[in-house]
Design a binder for these strands. Structure first.
Lengths: 296, 296
DNA sequence: ATAATAGTGTCTGTCAGACAATATCGT
DNA sequence: ACGATATTGTCTGACAGACACTATTAT
């Protein structure tokens, strides 16, 4: 069981080994976390009868210093030596949005050597889904500005799509053309994507963050089909129309109301609350069933 | 478009900034990749009529030095400053098994501060699936030994299972009891697992590698349902019985032959080759359809 | 004769997409 | 009257689990 007594080739016990151990002098990469914080907000319609549309939003910061000075980027920061990756991600989320206890999952880790021109940086991306509240994000030290960007990915044909990030207030529109390519790995074929900034876009996204955003959108699109994570993007009480438009914007297509409702029937339950926001029959508020929150 | 002319708060252009940039003196974690290399092998039956069973195997090395000296561990190693994470993973795979062009995907990144007692280590785990050939793995510098371990995870009731790693030849049996716990994050509940080494096991797995193995098994179990990755665990030509037992061992339950076949019908196609290995009607060899290899 | 492959067909229930029809409500 | 919610119902096709049955083959 214990290996306290075992000696290595130099005749050292584990305690002696650890006491004498000096981490090599070789260079080490910096380790950071990137935060992909999503929410949905109502695109308020003037028409007092028309419903509000939902828009998927992602939080971006405007970089204060080189490299990519003045460009929009994902929030994030260095991982302290004493904290785990998850802890670093929670800390960043708290710093940026001042909220806690929201859904979060690790996405993937990006480690291409030249992704940061300053030095070697390994970034673990985390995706957080926060309820659609009137959140006022806070610009950190490294940021001149911070804003919610409308994000969408729309297919424009055979293995091609457009990733679009927009914020009207900041007068920012950033578009990438994504081309999927397939190559064989063993007996499976994996697809890799190439990203090209469209000429129409005045500004690029910093680093390889467009790739991280794309991956998060794909993960979202897959996961809302077999989990309940989409409900993290709305408030505790929601109307069917509300959650349906969330699904529609993430999936990028319209859904049939009653088919959608049937699919949701086992996940949600009615409440007594009514929504009197528009000039027609009030919608019932629903909530996630307690037992369904736990399934996946 | 370009930001070459923009000046930061110190009045520096990007070129000037990068030329003068000195990475801070602060400590950095070491970055490694851990390789979860899976394959299946036939558990040959003496009975000339009985079929061979398949066993899922994972490659482990025996550590040569502290910490965890003499313990079995996942192969892996440090990421060089000039290579990406993917490249590091491919290099390790090549070093360990001398094979290339197999299916591989990034699993997750583990970065708890004390997972390595020597220093802070961030490990990105990669899962590779290699065809069931008679592979002779090679022990690296850091290893006294290397071997394929039979791996299985069996449910023993309410949120409890046993992770079992075994190699008869090396006289090694390692068993962990896994307890799943659920906690709320936002409106979803995520499950975390706790691992307890069973008293019956003489040896533990090094580091937190049991956790990585568990995560890989869960990923496998999920992914074989909606992708074709399982076919990477057998040779190019296989019998239905063969691929079915692969599914059965990964899912941990028996499947009905013809139902399984129907499900596979669109993924596989017959060949003219016959399998004369056992004393009964020869089985046809099948192969993955070319167009199905690309789906997912 | 045995033990396995390779396939047929059948029965059942569920589920998803599509859409029709209706009652209700607020302005 | 308008525009939206809320709900029931119908029709279809696909699919999945389960199992029975047959024909074939190598030793």
């Amino acid at each position: 069981m214990s290996n306290k007594h075992l000696l290595n080739k130099d005749g050292l016990t584990e305690d002696e080994f650890l006491k004498n151990y000096k981490p090599g002098d070789y260079e080490r990469p910096s380790v950071t976390v990137d935060m992909l914080i999503f929410t949905t907000v109502d695109k308020v319609s003037d028409n007092i009868k028309k419903l509000n549309e939902k828009e998927l939003k992602i939080l971006l910061i405007k970089r204060k210093d080189h490299p990519y000075i003045g460009k929009w980027a994902l929030p994030g920061g260095f991982v302290d030596m004493h904290e785990s990756l998850d802890e670093a991600a929670y800390r960043e989320l708290k710093e940026e949005t001042n909220i806690e206890n929201v859904y979060m999952e690790q996405l993937a880790t990006f480690g291409t050597p030249k992704r940061d021109p300053r030095m070697r940086v390994i970034s673990t991306a985390y995706m957080a889904l926060v309820p659609s509240n009137n959140l006022n994000p806070i610009a950190g030290d490294d940021a001149d500005d911070v804003a919610w960007f409308t994000v969408s990915k729309t297919n424009i044909g055979e293995n091609k799509s457009i990733l679009r990030l927009e914020n009207e207030e900041k007068n920012a529109v950033i578009e990438y053309e994504i081309s999927e390519k397939h190559c064989k790995k063993g007996f499976s074929t994996v697809s890799t994507s190439e990203y090209r900034l469209l000429e129409s876009s005045p500004d690029a996204i910093a680093f390889d963050h467009y790739e991280e955003i794309d991956m998060a959108l794909e993960r979202l699109k897959n996961k809302i089909e077999y989990t309940s994570i989409a409900f993290n993007l709305v408030r505790e009480y929601f109307t069917i129309a509300e959650i349906q438009t969330v699904y529609e914007t993430i999936l990028g297509r319209k859904l049939h109301r009653m088919d959608f409702m049937r699919k949701m029937k086992n996940k949600i339950e009615q409440t007594d609350l009514l929504c009197y926001e528009k000039a027609h029959r009030p919608a019932k508020y629903y909530k996630l069933k307690d037992d369904w929150a736990s399934v996946f």
